[in-house]
Amino acid sequence: MRPPVIEAIKIENYRALQDVEIKKLKPFTVLIGPNGSGKSTLFDVFAFMETAFSLGVRSAWDQRGGLRQLHSRGKDGPIAIQISYREQPKANLLTYRIEINEERGRPVVSREWLRWTAGAAQGRPRHILDFQNGSGYVVDESTGKKSQESLDGPDRLAVNALGQFKSHPRVAALRRFISGWYLSYLSVAEERKSPTAGPQERLSQSGDNISNVLQYLKENYPERLTSVMAALREAVPTLEHVDYETSPDGRLVLFIKDSPFTESVLASNASDGTLKLLSYLTLLHDPDPAPFIGIEEPENHLYNSVLPGLAQQCRLSSGHSQVLVTTHSHEFVNSCKSDEVIALYRGADGYSRVIRPNSLPLVSDMLEHGALLGSLWQENYFDELPEPKTPVIEVSRP
């Protein structure tokens, strides 16, 4: 059974994303756009939500500098993030919204609600949970009765608190869903480290435990490790195998062997691209994958010829995880479908706007005639600014 899939996201007053709504998100979605267009900001919205659910709103808020650094310049109203998702492909639509203000330097969840949209014959959307400033109600889904509740403080999330009770299964499912997201911030320097030995199930955000995860796969899911290595050898034909050894001081030391040579080399001496690709493939072949995976600019340290294969690996993984990728690479985009790509550009007002390449008739026509999606982006076919209106000048008659 696959995890929920986000179908739409709406963001208000979050840095350059002053009023952005993206509908019809795919299980595999690729964000593109020039520097400063808002790609990384949109990526950070998902990271903010994951941190807020895992470590608390205050932690997510403080890590980003609070209201002064987060709020859209010169705009009023709270920072708001709203996601619409389905727990299963044909299930009813669920929408979760959180609004955050700041009081005396502390974040305040001014509004938080979870709404269930039933079928058309069952009437209007119904709120499962609705809180303002730490107080509100939640519906017992087995009986339909509302109960009034108060949280410890206005910076707490009602979903986190109430999602621990069996009487609120949809609230609990949302809590598990968002707190389980994985946002990748892989670092080659971290990947070269030799961690303390011991199997670990999930790759860390920095990738510093890649050896531990390989140990876990080798001991518990050898067929997954075989798949990772097969995909890695396909991308790096000279690579023969990757293995690890336990040092006398109890640390895992990663070794990489190229086929022309008889001896392996330490991971600290291997290429940046090989280590980065190994981490991505290990992440995408996780036997118990995160429900949502975010990867920012995977092209860094990777050769262009590797990117189409990585795009295909991301698409295959989207069968069991929703995968979001930001990229500057035209080669990566060439391997994407037009409805998988979302382009962000800054408007004349300085805020981000969304363009869907598959909604542009000229782009669709050129793709039908053999053009490549990334090449069209490179030639600026996606950046279609609306035509300025011709001013009407009234001339007074004598």
Rank of each mutant, 00 (worst) to 15 (best):
P3Y: 12
P4L: 12
I9N: 07
Y14Q: 02
Y14P: 00
Q18Y: 03
K23H: 12
K23C: 07
T29Y: 03
L31T: 01
I32E: 02
S37G: 03
G38E: 02
L42R: 03
L42N: 00
D44E: 13
V45C: 10
L55G: 01
G56N: 04
G56E: 06
G66E: 03
Q69M: 09
Q69E: 13
L70F: 10
S72R: 11
I83D: 00
S84I: 00
L93P: 08
L93R: 10
T95V: 12
I98L: 00
E102C: 01
R106N: 10
R106G: 05
V109R: 01
E112F: 09
L114A: 05
T117P: 04
A120W: 03
A121W: 12
Q122E: 14
P125N: 06
L129S: 01
Q132A: 08
G136H: 05
V138P: 07
D140W: 07
E141S: 01
S147H: 13
E149H: 15
S150T: 15
D152M: 11
G153E: 14
G153V: 01
A161W: 03
G163H: 01
K166R: 06
K166A: 04
S167W: 00
L174A: 05
R175S: 00
R176A: 11
S179Y: 00
S179N: 03
K193N: 15
P199R: 02
Q205N: 06
N209E: 11
N209C: 11
N212M: 06
E219R: 15
L225N: 02
A231L: 12
T246I: 14
T246E: 08
S247Y: 05
L252F: 15
F261W: 08
T262N: 13
D272Q: 11
T274Y: 14
L275E: 08
L278C: 09
L278Y: 10
Y280H: 12
Y280W: 08
Y280R: 07
D286L: 04
I295E: 00
E299Y: 04
S305H: 13
V306C: 02
L307E: 02
P308Y: 00
G309K: 06
L310A: 03
Q312S: 07
S317M: 13
H320V: 07
Q322I: 07
V323T: 07
V323Y: 02
V325A: 03
T326E: 08
S329V: 08
F332H: 01
N334Q: 04
D339V: 09
V341K: 07
V341G: 03
I342H: 03
L344T: 04
R346P: 00
R346S: 04
R353I: 12
V354M: 03
L360V: 15
V363C: 09
V363W: 02
D365A: 14
M366A: 15
M366T: 06
G370V: 06
L373T: 06
L376F: 06
Y381H: 15
F382R: 06
L385Y: 13
P388T: 06
T390V: 14
E394L: 14
V395C: 03
P398K: 09
